[in-house]
């Protein structure tokens, strides 16, 4: 071993940090679009109308059933076949948002199902409408149950943004690979990339664990 695996970290870090910025943007946009999408599809799936149910199920099952990599290719290379071309960044946002919606949909659905039926019945009986019952009685309680898994999903989506590398979005891995082709110290630069991911993931997961413990104090279920 002629050089240590840490050599070059100083020069590489600023580049990779720029990639981290893009990765966080991707994550943020995916969550902002994906979480409401997930709630919406959860409501669609629980409808009695078969068409609504079918639409919801297709969105969820395709989003969860296909590898995220294939989903990315589908949006970036597949949609142009029907004359819908998105830039690589927007394709990545769309694919990650789709994935977020699909996975969070199940979390919303199971947390809504976890509520005792009496909550809905009592709200309706006290004269609240369907919408108000959902908005003011069911949703706040369901969210409390869903928050820890949703946050864990957010961390997973952040990790998944590494995949955007394959459609040349300038996130961490894209920068890392390029730096590797210049210095040939692939091990060093990919390890540094790994450290960056861990630097975001580990504290986030620890915080989520704390939050989960505190939230569970207030749930009666």
């Amino acid at each position: 071993m002629t050089s240590s695996v840490f050599s070059g970290w100083g020069q590489d870090l600023p580049e990779l940090l720029r990639g981290l910025g893009v990765a966080l943007q991707l994550t943020g946009l995916a969550l902002v679009l994906g979480f409401p999408g997930g709630l919406l599809t959860a409501l669609l799936v629980s409808r009695r109308n078969w068409l609504a149910k079918l639409v919801g199920l297709v969105i969820v099952e395709v989003g969860r059933g296909l590898p995220l990599l294939v989903l990315l290719y589908l949006v970036y290379q597949g949609l142009p076949q029907i004359h819908l071309s998105l830039t690589n960044f927007l394709s990545a946002v769309a694919a990650f948002a789709w994935s977020t919606a699909a996975y969070s949909s199940e979390m919303f659905r199971s947390s809504l199902n976890a509520l005792p039926n009496g909550q809905r019945e009592a709200a309706l009986a006290s004269g609240m409408g369907q919408v108000d019952t959902f908005r003011f009685v069911l949703l706040p309680q369901a969210l409390r149950i869903a928050i820890p898994p949703l946050l864990n999903l957010a961390v997973q989506i952040f990790q998944a943004t590494a995949l955007a590398y394959v459609i040349t979005v300038p996130e961490i891995m894209q920068h890392a690979y390029f730096l590797g082709t210049v210095s040939f110290l692939y091990l060093n630069v990919f390890l540094l990339a790994g450290v960056l991911y861990a630097a975001v993931t580990l504290p986030s997961s620890a915080l989520i664990a704390v939050l989960e413990r505190r939230l569970s104090r207030h749930t009666s279920v």
């Binding site: 990790q159 891995m173 690979y177 692939y186 091990l187 060093n188 790994g194 991911y197 861990a198």
Partner: peptide
């Protein structure tokens, strides 16, 4: 804490 893709690249390219 590190994405699978990064591990894959560490093993294959690193």
């Amino acid at each position: 804490s590190i994405p699978v893709l990064v591990w894959l690249f560490i093993v294959f390219f690193g």
